[in-house]
C-alpha cells in the first residue's frame, strides 16, 4: 500500500498539527538565535515520489544548504536552505557584524550556519519525538552551496536506499523583514512514515 493510501483524514489532520507544533518550536529557536522577529509559513506535508524531489526547493539559483541526517526509530533528513544572499545576511546577524560585511561563506560562516541547522533541527525533532513518542535524533550537520536541484538530487538518492517515495514536511521563514528567506524541509523514508502513521492511529 502506498503512503497516500494509508493517510486517512484523521491521520492527515494530526500530521498537519505535528507539522505546525514542531515547525513553531524550531522557528522560535531561530527567532531567539537571531534576536529578530520571524515570520513562518508552515507548508504542511506531502507524499513525494523520488523522481519529483529535485523540484521541492523553491529556488532557481544557488542556495547554501545545511543537511542533517535523522536516525533512530525514524529515519530521514532535514535540509535547511537559504538563497546565497540570505545566508550571508544571516551570518552578519549571528556574528553581530554590520550588514553586508560577510561576502563569502568561509569556515567561520560555515560553522555558524551549521550550528543554526543544529538548533533548528534539534528543536523540530524534540517536538516531533515528544508528540509521537518515537525516537528521532539528528546527526552532525554538513553544509554545501550549489543549485537547489543538484542538492535535492543527491538527497533523492539517499532516500532511494529505503523506498521510492517520502513523507515531506515544509516550512518557509522570513527573518528581519524579508532580508533573509529560508526553507526547511524534513523528510522521512517510507518505513518511518508508516511508523508515524501507526503511532497516530
Amino acid at each position: 500500500m502506498s503512503l497516500n493510501q494509508k493517510l486517512s483524514l484523521e491521520v492527515t489532520e494530526k500530521l498537519n498539527h505535528i507539522s505546525e507544533v514542531a515547525g513553531r518550536n524550531a522557528s522560535e529557536a531561530l527567532s531567539k538565535l537571531t534576536d529578530q522577529k520571524l515570520e513562518v509559513v508552515i507548508m504542511g506535508f506531502e507524499v513525494v515520489s523520488i523522481e519529483d524531489i529535485n523540484d521541492v526547493l523553491d529556488a532557481d539559483d544557488v542556495v547554501t544548504a545545511v543537511y542533517l541526517e535523522i536516525k533512530g526509530d525514524l529515519n530521514g533528513g532535514i535540509i535547511l536552505a537559504f538563497p546565497e544572499r540570505s545566508s550571508l545576511s544571516l551570518v552578519d546577524i549571528l556574528l553581530k557584524k554590520s550588514d553586508g560585511e560577510t561576502v563569502s561563506i568561509d569556515d567561520m560562516a560555515k560553522s555558524v550556519l551549521k550550528e543554526t541547522g543544529n538548533i533548528l533541527a534539534g528543536n523540530y525533532l524534540a517536538a516531533l519525538s515528544n508528540y509521537l513518542k518515537l525516537n528521532a535524533l539528528e546527526s552532525i550537520p554538513d553544509i554545501t552551496s550549489d543549485s537547489a536541484e543538484s542538492i535535492m538530487n543527491s538527497l533523492a538518492i539517499e532516500i532511494s536506499r529505503h523506498s521510492f517515495e517520502a513523507l515531506l514536511f515544509k516550512m518557509n521563514f522570513v527573518v528581519d523583514k524579508a532580508v533573509i528567506k529560508g526553507q526547511m524541509i524534513i523528510f522521512f523514508d517510507s518505513d518511518s512514515a508508516k511508523k508515524m502513521i501507526d503511532a497516530l492511529k
Binding site: Y67, I140, D142, S154, L155, E158, R161
Partner: peptide, 16 residues
C-alpha cells in the same frame, strides 16, 4: 556522480 555532502550516508557517498 558527484558527492554533494561529505557526511551524507555511506550509501549515497558511494552511489555516485
Amino acid at each position: 556522480g558527484a558527492n554533494m555532502f561529505s557526511t551524507l550516508g555511506t550509501y549515497s557517498r558511494e552511489i555516485g
